[in-house]
Simulated scan of single mutants.
Amino acid sequence: MTSTLLTTGARDRAPAAPAAPARRKRSRAWLAALPLFAFAAVGFGTPALAMLTGAFTVKDPATGADSFSTANLTTSLHGPYLTALLGSVKLSAVSAGIAAVLGLLLAQAVVSFGSRTLREAVLTGSGVLANFGGVPLAFAFVATLGNSGVLTHRLGLADAGWSLYSFWGLTLTYLYFLIPLMVLTITPALEGLRVQWREAAQNNGATKAQYWRHVALPVLAPSLLGGLVLLFGSAFAAYATAAAMVGSSVPLITLQIADAISGNVLVGQENVALALSLDMVVVAGLVMAVHLPLQRRSARWFV
């Protein structure tokens, strides 16, 4: 009987044996990821540390001595710098809101059509257009809708008061890459809406509008808000397109950072650009803090 108990006890303890190999595999996985962590620490950590240190460092114009102070941050939140920060937030919010609505409608039209060829063509084109920006995009819009643009002359837009080098002109330009980005973001969520949900709503007497109001939109809400936040961050960080097209006619924080880096600041305010960059990092951090929970919440419905 004793041998039987020992045998039974051995069988009960047997499944615990693979725990050690599993721990060794996890430790090897961490070792394999060390080069990535080291690269991230050097590529992102070092600039972030330099930016954080410089944002709180002030140089005395008389002695040239450095000291830690919040003067740079205070300067970055007053006067033209604050105007530029608010201008970037306004431009990003408006362009992201318009792009979210238009991108949702376009993605829904593609999904409802049901053609795989059309879907692949639209998503491929959206992937290309979402990454098309900078000076080439600015040149394309200037040649088309600028003061001497083709459409400006043919449609008489100048007589109607149209100006590409304005807030709304820049908003229109940003929509060129924000709408495709929204299509890429929201299409998987639209495809995740199950047919059974629509059929159940119809069987219970719901109209199409009621289905979208009470079923589809609540399910899509986290994905929609996440896409909106993503578009806001993309527009907020854009620089080359605005710099090449509007210059300083539209106040943006990215353009103010470029001016400060080039030395267009008062003596003793050399690190204002780093303070402005820190302001952008804070805004981007808030955007990511909103985006990540929404992304996790939306993933629960589409598994």
Rank of each mutant, 00 (worst) to 15 (best):
R11H: 10
A19D: 06
A20F: 15
A32K: 08
L36R: 05
L36G: 13
A38L: 15
A41T: 12
G45T: 05
P47K: 07
A48K: 00
T53Q: 13
A62G: 10
F68C: 04
L91F: 05
L91H: 02
V94S: 04
G97L: 14
A99G: 06
G103Q: 07
L106G: 01
L106K: 01
L106C: 11
V111C: 05
V111P: 00
F113D: 11
E120R: 15
V122L: 07
G127T: 07
N131F: 05
A138D: 01
A140D: 05
A143Q: 12
G149S: 06
V150S: 08
L151I: 09
L151A: 11
D159L: 09
S163H: 12
L164R: 02
Y165M: 11
T173Q: 08
Y176P: 00
L184C: 04
P188I: 03
P188C: 03
A201V: 07
K208G: 14
K208W: 11
Q210T: 09
V215Y: 06
L228T: 09
A238F: 11
A243Y: 11
M245C: 04
P251A: 06
V265F: 07
V272R: 04
V272F: 08
A275M: 08
L278W: 09
D279N: 15
M288N: 10
P293S: 01
Q295K: 12
R296D: 06
S298T: 07
W301T: 11
W301I: 03
